[in-house]
Simulated assay, not measured.
Amino acid sequence: MFSFEQLRGFVTVAEELHFGRAAERLNMTQPPLSRQIQKLERSIGVTLLDRDNRRVELTAAGRAFLVEATRLLALADAAPDLARRIAEGTTGIVRVGFTAASTFGVLTDVLDRISVALPQIELDLYEMVTREQVEALLAHEIDLALARPPFDPDLFGSRLIRREELVVAVPAGHPLAALDRPVEVGDLAGVPLVMHSPTKARYFYDLVVGLLPVEHHNVAHTVSQVATMIWLVAAGRGVAFVPRSAARLGIDGVVHLPLRTREAKPVELHLLWPRDSTNPALPHALAALEELDPDG
């Protein structure tokens, strides 16, 4: 096996095509440099240099090997600095889980802030519902989540990053769209609903039934994704309760109406991370997100 010292000697000779000048650059004498090259050639089993008393030239094998030797030396030179930056948390990977609904304006803000503050951090994205994000955080498959409450505070650190209104998405031309006031519970009597799944969209399901007396015999469809709900609304299959940010989808044929609720902004989105994370980049990512305004 060859050494980096032998690689460096070979690259220097290949650049100078002169053993004397190469030895001078390496602060050594010519005989030990010649022995380094000979050991390297024996190690890899090919002749890298044609040399005599007047000239030194690279063989075809030597030209090919020079490319890889230069690359290996560059990696070796960069490795200590890279290791230090990874240990400091300024270089590395942060794996971010997010709910589909969090892409409506929040996710891009999170990514932009981390990228500006930490340009050497690579961000890997994973779309998951909150339950899946919690499981992935516990398994250390992701480092940071954009998820809905509640969370176990003993296991997770969390920070509120967005709160917003719950609105009613209705088909264009629906009678509710003619109201000159927020929609109230009584206005929804007998209206077909596109409802959140109680298992796959548990946060929104609990939020809606906690705020409104949903009549389950009016539920026409149950789905897990907000975007799917709005497409069903556009098709005239019912009305749906969605976060205000969902209007950014811009789906034709859908109007988003204010809804009177006990809380003005009941929909919450949190940053979530495992308290026992060992990723040194995570604290830096969280610091970059400290100025996020929950009210947008």
Rank of each mutant, 00 (worst) to 15 (best):
M1S: 14
F2Q: 02
S3D: 02
S3G: 08
S3L: 00
G9M: 01
V11H: 00
H18D: 14
A23M: 14
T29W: 10
Q30G: 04
P31R: 03
P32R: 12
S34N: 13
R35Q: 02
R35C: 10
Q36N: 13
I37D: 00
L40H: 01
E41W: 00
I44Q: 00
V46H: 03
R51V: 04
R55A: 10
A64G: 13
L66E: 01
T70A: 01
A78T: 05
P80L: 05
L82T: 12
T90D: 02
V94M: 08
R95F: 06
V96Q: 12
V96C: 05
F98C: 03
A100F: 15
V110G: 09
S115T: 11
V116A: 08
P119L: 04
I121V: 05
M128R: 15
M128K: 14
T130K: 10
R131N: 01
R131A: 08
E132L: 03
E132A: 06
E132F: 05
Q133A: 02
V134L: 06
E135F: 15
A136V: 06
L137A: 08
I142H: 08
I142V: 07
D152R: 08
L160K: 08
I161P: 07
R162F: 08
A172H: 11
P175L: 15
D180W: 12
D180N: 14
G186Q: 02
L188F: 12
L188H: 15
M195L: 15
L207T: 00
V209S: 02
G210E: 09
P213K: 15
V214D: 09
E215H: 06
H216R: 14
H217M: 10
S224P: 01
V226I: 08
L232G: 12
A234I: 03
G238M: 05
G238F: 01
A240T: 07
A246G: 10
R248F: 07
L249V: 02
L249S: 09
G250E: 09
G250A: 01
R262V: 07
V267G: 10
D276W: 11
A288I: 05
L289D: 00
E291K: 15
G296C: 09
